[in-house]
């Protein structure tokens, strides 16, 4: 899922300083699962903002909304009938949701209420960790199902570097060395013979480096 976490309240208060009537829009997708932008988080944020604003004698009216997904147009459009009654939207969807709202509601300022962090997994309740950098050219079949781009701090393709000690990365003892994990897996899978293969320089064209990306599926377009 896409993992996000709440922005500080003060930062959001500053964004909406000039407004008196806003929508807070959550999303039932990834950010609900990672407890950053679902229905409950909409309620909590709305309550905190109302309290903060009333305390400074500048009350705020909030419509609390949770969209099925902010990254699909049909769900955004459900806001259409009432969006015009409000001065701004704070979206606590991911960065894609915030931007898609902005594209669809040209006249409304859209503010991000969370920071979008990474594509990751729930390692245990309340703890999420990065797994994928969306480089656009998956090589997990070569690396035992563990990604050197996302899991190695230097994204090196021939690791581990000289900073790997006792299974952790040189940057932090709490960060596992991605290449140690890869080697452990390759060994368990009896695939170490591929280790000494020189890998060509990776093409980053399919990553963000090639410019904003788009996928067109002719079989699905109308």
């Amino acid at each position: 899922m896409i993992v996000g976490n709440a922005k500080p309240l003060a930062e959001i208060l500053q964004m909406i300083e000039s407004h008196q009537k806003i929508i807070i829009a959550g999303c039932h997708g990834c950010v609900t699962v990672c407890r950053a932008g679902g229905e409950k988080e909409v309620q909590i944020l709305a309550s905190a903002l109302r309290l903060a604003r009333e305390a400074v004698k500048n009350p705020l009216e909030i419509r609390e909304v949770s969209l099925e997904r902010q990254c699909d147009p049909e769900y955004l459009e459900t806001m259409r009938p009432y969006a015009g009654d409000y001065q701004a939207v704070v979206s606590i969807g991911c960065g894609a949701g915030v931007q898609f709202l902005a594209e669809h509601f040209a006249a409304l300022p859209i503010y991000p209420g969370i920071n979008t962090n990474f594509i990751g997994v729930t390692e245990r309740q309340g703890e999420w960790a990065e797994r994928c950098q969306a480089c656009g050219d998956c090589m997990l079949h070569l690396t035992g199902g563990i990604c050197p781009i996302a899991r190695c701090s230097k994204s090196i393709l021939h690791g581990p570097c000289g900073g790997s000690v006792d299974g952790h990365c040189e940057i932090d003892k709490d960060v596992p060395c991605g290449w140690q994990l890869i080697i452990d897996r390759l060994r368990a899978l009896n695939m170490m013979d591929s280790y000494e293969k020189l890998r060509p320089m990776k093409s980053w064209r399919t990553s963000r480096d090639g410019g904003p990306r788009r996928i067109v599926r002719e079989d699905l377009t109308r």
Partner: peptide, 8 residues
């Protein structure tokens, strides 16, 4: 923590 941030 939220109440502190909200000035309450």
């Amino acid at each position: 923590a939220l109440l502190t941030d909200a000035g309450i």
